[in-house]
Each structure stands twice: as structure tokens, then as C-alpha cells.
């Protein structure tokens, strides 16, 4: 986790430096706002990874000498075939089209979105272990 933390922190701090230079040199506040937000997009994930780095057990994928046998147990649950991402996508599509063609597509799209989002959540309970 150390490298993951450092690359995010590195980007965040670099952009923070750029922000500081830009702030005092350009005195243009639109750019400063965007740069400051970008620095946050580097530093916030870095803090998350840094927080976990201290709390999690050392992982075999961070060890140069780990063997395949060192990792026991399932990697995670991976769902098999499911139609709901497609339905969710169509819901988003029709909801988006309502911005162009009027509210009636939102009725269909919104219904699909709610239905698919609920189904996809319920389905998570049935996800198999690989």
C-alpha cells in the first residue's frame, strides 16, 4: 500500500505546489480553484490509502518474496452473468434523452433506473465465490 499512497500523495503535493505558484503569479482565481480541487483529488485518496496502510496486514502482493501459496482464501465474490447493468444503462440513456426530448423519456428511464438499481443491489447477495 506504500507505493499506492506515495504516487497519489506525490501528484497531490505537486499540484498543490503548482497551485501556490499560480496563485501568487497569475492572480486568476478560476484556475486557482480548479487546481486546488485537483490537488484535493490527489491528496484525498492518498489519505485513504495512507490510513489503511497503517491498519491492514502486510499483503503478499506487496512482498517481493511472496509465493503463490502464501495467499489463502477466496479473492472475492465475482458475479456471473446479469442483465441489470444493461437495464441500468438503458435507464441512464433514456433519462439522459429526457434533457433533449422532454420529460416522457424520463418516466420510462427513471422507472428502469430504480428497478435495475434495486435488482442489482438484491442480486449482490447471490454473487458466487469464484
Amino acid at each position: 500500500m506504500k507505493v499506492e499512497y506515495r504516487i497519489y500523495m506525490g501528484i497531490g503535493i505537486f499540484v498543490l505546489l503548482v497551485t501556490t505558484v499560480y496563485f501568487f503569479w497569475a492572480k486568476e482565481y478560476g484556475g486557482v480553484t480548479m487546481l486546488f480541487g485537483t490537488a484535493g483529488l490527489g491528496i484525498m485518496p492518498a489519505l485513504y490509502f495512507g490510513w489503511w496502510r497503517k491498519r491492514m496486514d502486510p499483503r503478499p502482493e506487496d512482498s517481493e518474496t511472496a509465493t503463490l501459496a502464501e495467499s489463502k482464501g477466496a479473492i472475492g465474490a465475482f458475479p456471473s452473468n446479469t442483465i441489470w447493468p444493461f437495464v441500468l444503462g438503458m435507464g441512464a440513456f433514456l433519462s439522459g434523452l429526457s434533457l433533449v426530448f422532454g420529460e416522457w423519456t424520463l418516466v420510462i428511464g427513471g422507472a428502469l433506473l430504480i428497478f435495475a438499481a434495486a435488482s442489482v443491489t438484491l442480486e449482490s447477495r447471490r454473487g458466487g465465490v469464484i
Partner: peptide, 11 residues
């Protein structure tokens, strides 16, 4: 970040 094989460090 999370699904690498054992021994496959970032570098």
C-alpha cells in the same frame, strides 16, 4: 491496487 498476484509489487 487490490487484485495483484502475490509477489507482483507495484514496481
Amino acid at each position: 491496487f487490490y487484485l495483484r498476484a502475490p509477489g507482483l509489487t507495484m514496481f
